[in-house]
């Protein structure tokens, strides 16, 4: 992206609530932002270390529940609860990271799915802690000094800040020595190991950061929708994140954000365009077409296009 385009984009993003007055569209953008944080987090594992984590909804859900339970049950203010959510999710990431030490590829995938499955079942059955299927309604909105961030405009800026923060964290990580180690891991693990890259250390690091960011996304979700129920652990959330990352372009930084925006807006656009019977069928078909024509993802395809035009 050229410098001018980037400045323009930033300006648009910063002033969004003022020219996008429709609260429904603002709602879609906020959800896209939350999923943007989630997609960036999944991209760390999937795109950069090459590990396919299909249990990412578990970290999202752990973040959401932690935040909700602390603010509802123990009357914590939102900000420390959010930090706790990130910490707890990161801890879960550490556990998975250590487990992954022994496993690669398909096996890692299955452990992550199983982990998410077990956490989901716990949230449904452990009534005393999570209130089970009844869910946790009335999660409070965050407060900044005297202002309550209940309004959509205020929450938009919170989410925007979170997205920027996540992007920065990922960018710094990826461009550092650690990031190079990730890439080495992804491309050729035995070779990386032979050159002295501490594979286990980096995998765990990636898992911890990835999970922590997902926990942040979960906390943001909980305080926005103000209702948390075991459905957050649904596999469909993980699938959605995967779609966003891979279709957007895994291994790039902009890809997951593009994917998040596109695939949050798409179902809503379909909701507006077609009647309820055809929505999801159209979604599936569109997804198929997208992958068929742009197998590497949108952002890499755009870059290729620009490269071709330049040459």
């Amino acid at each position: 992206m050229t410098r001018a385009a980037r400045v323009l984009g930033a300006l648009l993003a910063l002033t969004l609530p003022f020219w996008l007055q429709n609260p429904y569209y603002l709602h879609v953008v906020i959800m896209a932002g939350i999923f943007g944080v989630l997609s960036l987090s999944l991209n760390l594992l999937l795109g950069y270390t090459g590990q396919l984590s299909l249990g990412h909804a578990a970290f999202f859900g752990i973040g959401a529940y932690t935040s909700a339970l602390l603010t509802l049950g123990l009357a914590w203010p939102v900000w420390p609860a959010m930090l706790a959510a990130v910490a707890l999710a990161a801890l879960a990431g550490w556990v998975i990271g250590r487990l992954a030490l022994k496993l690669r590829g398909a096996y890692f995938v299955l452990v992550t799915i199983s982990f998410a499955g077990v956490v989901s079942l716990v949230s449904v059955n452990w009534m005393e802690l999570t209130n089970g299927p009844l869910g946790l309604p009335g999660v409070p909105a965050p407060e900044l000094g005297p202002w309550s961030l209940r309004t959509k405009t205020a929450y938009y800026y919170l989410v925007l800040a979170a997205v920027a923060l996540s992007y920065l964290v990922c960018a710094r990580l990826v461009r550092s020595r650690i990031g190079r180690a990730f890439l080495a891991l992804r491309e050729n693990e035995p070779l990386a190991e032979s050159v002295g890259v501490d594979v286990t250390h980096y995998l765990v690091l990636a898992a911890v950061v990835s999970a922590g960011l997902a926990g942040l996304g979960g906390s943001l979700y909980a305080h926005y929708t103000r209702f948390v129920s075991p459905e957050v652990f649904l596999f469909t959330y993980t699938v959605t994140m995967v779609i966003m990352v891979v279709a957007g372009g895994k291994g790039t930084l902009a890809g997951p954000l593009v994917g998040a925006l596109l695939f949050t807006a798409l179902p809503e656009a379909l909701r507006l365009a077609t009647s309820w019977q055809w929505q999801m069928l159209a979604y599936g078909v569109l997804l198929l077409l997208l992958v068929y024509f742009l197998p590497r993802g949108i952002v890499p395809a755009l870059r290729e296009l620009r490269g071709r035009r330049a040459s």
């Binding site: 429709n22 609260p23 429904y24 709602h27 959800m31 869910g135 929708t225 209702f227 129920s229 459905e231 649904l234 469909t236 809503e268 909701r271 507006l272």
Partner: peptide, 16 residues
């Protein structure tokens, strides 16, 4: 059958 969708649907119905 998803609470998140129920909230989105309500928002869409009311606003749009």
């Amino acid at each position: 059958s998803d609470p998140k969708e129920a909230a989105s649907a309500a928002e869409k119905l009311i606003v749009r």
